[in-house]
């Protein structure tokens, strides 16, 4: 893993998510897309580190939600996806889209559940928001894998199970 490139990528995407995309009502979650990318393209140890780091970045721009829920949920499901990828290779775009959708729904639900435990209110439309965001992410996500792979200097044929 090229960690400097990883840090720059996460920083840029985090700023993009908080600045440009924040004003859109329905938008993809770019950080979840990256979570799935690193979970299926890198080895398990790197996937664990990147999942928690992306979760931390999501928490940084998750205000007014408290910090912590996204770090835990991204880390947990990123790690699970990395282990799952050792058994089932997620090669084709429809499977990648499905992986993004399921991961996005699970991280969204766990994030709001953890926030609720700490006393945060849960809005009535939360499941609709999570569903729509997951849907957008799964549509856009697989197309972003190619530029991300180029930036991270990895070959797209790198789909081997680890």
């Amino acid at each position: 893993m090229r960690w400097l490139r990883f840090a720059l990528l996460i920083l840029a995407v985090t700023v993009l998510q908080k600045g440009l995309l924040a004003r859109w009502s329905s938008k993809p979650d770019l950080l979840v897309i990256l979570l799935v990318f690193f979970a299926i393209y890198y080895n398990t140890s790197e996937a664990i580190i990147s999942s928690f780091t992306i979760g931390f970045a999501a928490d940084l721009v998750g205000s007014p939600m408290p910090m912590g829920p996204q770090m835990i949920s991204f880390g947990l499901f990123g790690t699970l996806l990395a282990y799952l990828h050792r058994v089932i290779a997620i090669k084709k775009m429809p499977y990648q889209a499905l992986a993004i959708f399921v991961t996005s729904v699970l991280t969204g639900v766990l994030t709001h559940l953890l926030a609720y435990i700490t006393g945060e209110p849960v809005a009535a439309n939360i499941f609709a928001v999570v569903f729509v965001t997951s849907l957008y992410s799964s549509i856009v996500g697989p197309f972003l894998f190619l530029p991300t792979a180029w930036w991270m200097r990895i070959k797209m044929s790198r789909f081997s199970r680890r």
Binding site: I48, I49, F52, G55, M67, M71, T118
Partner: peptide, 16 residues
């Protein structure tokens, strides 16, 4: 160990 440390950090942030 890596996973445990990270998840612990997450919970520290959550309950801080």
């Amino acid at each position: 160990m890596l996973f445990t440390w990270f998840i612990l950090t997450g919970f520290i942030f959550l309950f801080a």
